[in-house]
Design a protein around this nucleic acid. Structure first.
Lengths: 119, 119
DNA sequence: CTACTTGCAAACACTTTGCACATCC
DNA sequence: GGATGTGCAAAGTGTTTGCAAGTAG
């Protein structure tokens, strides 16, 4: 189901790309590039960190992945459509006290209205 | 009023420290270390970037300054007690759609309850 | 054969650390 | 003179880029 998204853009659905999507789709964690690299490295030792970064960049451009930060200096990545955590959900973070609230994603009502999300 | 906080810890209230606090207390912006460095540099060309970083670290330990990130790869700093923006206020950020809501700080009711802020 | 992919190493941007000198009390 | 503070340069960390080699269609 993912191959077509690549082919449609003249891109190839290579082993590294499939492996990285696999890792992202089988966790609800917010992974860093290195997390993903290490996870993939078990099965495919040939895949380098550079490829992980480039693939993530590509997946973001394709609208499949979000990138964000939790304040520890490294980027985090998450599949937008994830069977384990479906739909669009928000991450509310109080940068002062570090409280993080994951909510949304069509699993029912939230205590907060979702607003219009101005850029 | 700040000197005492330093002396009480056996620390000195030096010119760089005063200058950096000055910059922070005269803006409501969320400044990066380099922003602060450049602002201070006009009046005190001798103050280096290293000192800015070390002073900010110290101010955080002292509980005077917050550090956080807006997702552009650099840290941002803000005075906790700021005459222009008083009291404790939260920064709610949806990391997905980038909406940022500043609220709180004792200027009246918010649309959201503030919760208990678990770590 | 042409465009797309990749790994390695080098380059980058921001931040931290090592060290010698300066300063305060 | 001992602890604190500083600037410079070097090291560190996470990320991106240059480049030559590999591969699909």
């Amino acid at each position: 189901m993912n191959e077509g998204r690549f082919r449609g853009r003249g891109l190839r659905f290579t082993e590294p790309r499939r492996a990285i999507l696999d890792v992202l789709s089988t966790t609800t964690d917010h992974l860093s590039a290195e997390d993903i690299y290490l996870a993939v490295h078990g099965d495919y030792p040939g895949i380098g960190l550079t490829t992980v970064y480039r693939t993530l960049e590509l997946l973001i451009e394709m609208g499949l992945v979000y990138r964000f930060q939790f304040g520890d200096g490294r980027n985090r990545y998450e599949l937008i459509q994830n069977r384990l955590k479906p739909g669009h959900h928000h991450h509310l973070v109080c940068i002062n006290c570090k409280k993080i609230i994951d909510y949304g994603g069509g699993r029912g009502r939230n205590r907060f209205s979702s607003g219009s999300g101005r850029k």
